[in-house]
Design a protein around this nucleic acid. Sequence first.
DNA 1: TTCTTTGCAAATGATTTGCACATGA
DNA 2: TCATGTGCAAATCATTTGCAAAGAA
Lengths: 256, 256
Amino acid sequence: MTDDVKSAFAAYLHSENLKMTPQRELILDIFLSNSNHISSEELYNIVNTKDNSIGQATVYRMMKLLSDSAIARECEFGDGRLYYELNFGKGHHDHLVCVKCGRKIEVYDEIIEKQQDLLAKKHGFKLISHRLDFFGICGDCAMSEKTTRPQEEVNSNSGAVETVYETLPLSKLESGGRAVVMEFILDGKHGLSGAISNRKLLTSHRSRIQELGIRAGKMVEMLNNKGRGPVMFKVDDSRIALGRGLAMKIIVRKEG
Amino acid sequence: MTDDVKSAFAAYLHSENLKMTPQRELILDIFLSNSNHISSEELYNIVNTKDNSIGQATVYRMMKLLSDSAIARECEFGDGRLYYELNFGKGHHDHLVCVKCGRKIEVYDEIIEKQQDLLAKKHGFKLISHRLDFFGICGDCAMSEKTTRPQEEVNSNSGAVETVYETLPLSKLESGGRAVVMEFILDGKHGLSGAISNRKLLTSHRSRIQELGIRAGKMVEMLNNKGRGPVMFKVDDSRIALGRGLAMKIIVRKEG
DNA sequence: TTCTTTGCAAATGATTTGCACATGA
DNA sequence: TCATGTGCAAATCATTTGCAAAGAA
């Protein structure tokens, strides 16, 4: 497989009168040997450990070549970087993006694809392409959350009580509900409402949220959530009102 | 409706100990009176015509406020800008984005939504949100293409012959097929393979493609497209080989 | 009065580019 | 040979931020 890709790339270079160089070869090798969905910068960091004479620009340029040749495909997940996945010999698929560990799972669903075509047709729309990304928490991360169960709740003195947790945006925590803050979702320059990344915390809002004492691990108690307008909740001993838009960007874990 | 939004925003400001200012009021008015899916910069340009003392930063800051309060929602369509749509009183929806005119059509499909939940569950994935964007050509643009039919083909000397056009990426034009170049799809910094925008031409590749003489309106004839590897086609009198990845980014119109 | 806002200009940060030199075919 | 590739540093570009002056409650 790796060899197929390499000869396909060589053929591409040849057809475009471009040249194979040791830099290009090393970058391709590293791209192929690494887990998919890597950004140019991450790739550069790895390349750099093998050969620190290679510049960032070379890596960026190479990724464009791989994309032009359709050996790689560019994807973006709302955090302002471009990621590259292997495209050679693969068909269309959608992504499940874990906001906790950043893992990207490739999925495909025939029913969704068909229904998308119908939907486009219904609107007189001539489809060229589409993208579907899911943001949430993967099975592994959901599992490990159980392990790092917060101390406040470890009160079982006997018997085997399995507690099931539910992960949701703070904006969906109902009045009276208690939950633990897990994660903030990306915002700022490359934000994407509803969509999420674990790469950076909010930029413009980080300070605002953190000033309020809302930090990962904190317990929150929802005082008032009418499903509309700002939500009112308690952290430590203070009451906080927060716009629904911001509250949607705070992921909490609730006992279910 | 407009009044509802405005009082909701006033309530939000109050709940957050923020203040109403003439700047904020003007920006909100203009946002509400304009078509949805506007970027901060576009909005600033309009605001600027009404009051040129208002700075860009104020507009950017206001859009964050509208997003924090959930009155607006941020969306991005792969061109590196953030767009804002009215969110107040609206539910989840997906977007059909026309690569020709840039129009964004909001759509919703119950079957797709249900299937998405099933798909996530099947992969043990706890869904927080998702986004689904379609890129293609809207009915109106498809219609107006017929009107601006290229001269080369206007040879009907009698009778009413209706010609139906089909729009597709060059990479999908079969060997022997002829088509007219319509559009290049976005790339560069904020590119998105498969996904598309009409805002900018390719940056890094524009020169390469244009040097080759490929321009909107040009007739191309596919010489060899095996469905894999580079495609070979003719423009004017020269033969050109192009990587499949790049060829996917050239939208052509074929007689069908 | 006392925070909050604002406009301006400078800073960000991922990515691209100009340039002079180096190198593959 | 000689067009193409490379590293470096400077340039982009949408967006954010620091700051001193101005304004709302």
